[in-house]
């Protein structure tokens, strides 16, 4: 395959056309912050963490949904981008109720790690403290909306990988919530196959198995990516 030249952070790279900026960065060990991206499922550009500057574009572009072009000039770590990433991270924490010290995902949470990476020490925005439900109706799993960041990784994994489409998103604005079926308790869903994939896709402590104690949660999102890779190989 013919490669095309792109310049990322002043370094010239020869890359395969058709790849996203994010894929190219990851392959070349350029650190990228992401939250809604999960390798193997469709990218939707929702979390705005992977924003990059592309010369000639009048706005920041999400690297996960932007494909490389020949001679594209990209910057991934400018002050402006860092400022945005910090704001985005703060808003994640301000929008729902995140109390790491009592969370099953403490120490294993992608949101917590993101906080460390952007050196979050305090949050400048007022916390919304929304009233959120904790759905414990499923026999094995819990869905705690207090810890959900609306990345929709669970939705896409359940739909694209498991093919069950139990999850989707209801409402808009601050009222958005992940729902199963008709906003039905998860345990009464007629579509969920109880496969557990959403649990591994979820970057936070929002979805977790009941048979776990605080801080013991081990999630394997890369397992889902591998699964999708293997499926492609069979084709």
């Amino acid at each position: 395959m013919n490669t095309i030249p792109v310049i990322i952070n002043d370094k010239k790279l020869d890359v395969d056309p058709g790849k996203t900026i994010l894929e190219v960065c990851r392959e070349n060990d350029i650190e990228m912050l992401t939250m809604c991206h999960l390798k193997g499922v469709m990218d939707i550009g929702a979390c705005r963490l992977c924003l990059v500057e592309v010369e000639g574009a009048n706005k920041l572009m999400s690297a996960c949904t932007t494909r490389v072009n020949a001679n594209m000039i990209v910057r991934t770590a400018t002050d402006k981008i860092k400022r945005y990433q910090r704001i985005t991270t703060e808003l994640f924490f301000a929008e729902r109720n995140h109390v790491c010290s009592v969370c099953v995902a403490n120490g294993k949470c992608e949101l917590q790690q993101l906080g460390y990476k952007v050196e979050l020490d305090h949050i400048r925005y007022p916390h919304l403290f929304p009233q959120c439900e904790v759905d414990t109706s499923h026999p094995w799993y819990v869905m705690d909306h207090n810890r959900c960041i609306m990345c929709t990784r669970c939705v896409r994994v359940c739909t694209e990988v498991e093919g069950a489409h139990n999850w989707d998103v209801m409402n808009r604005g601050h009222q958005v919530r992940i729902i199963s079926d008709f906003n039905t308790p998860w345990g009464e869903s007629i579509t969920c196959t109880s496969c557990g994939k959403c649990l591994h896709a979820c970057p936070t402590g929002a979805i977790w198995p009941k048979a776990i104690v605080q801080g013991q949660l081990e999630k394997k999102p890369e397992m889902l990516s591998e699964l999708m890779e293997k499926r492609k190989m069979k084709l």
Partner: peptide, 12 residues
Amino acid sequence: LPPSRVYSTVTF
């Protein structure tokens, strides 16, 4: 259709 898809549309 998946129920959640329909509910999502209705509430949007």
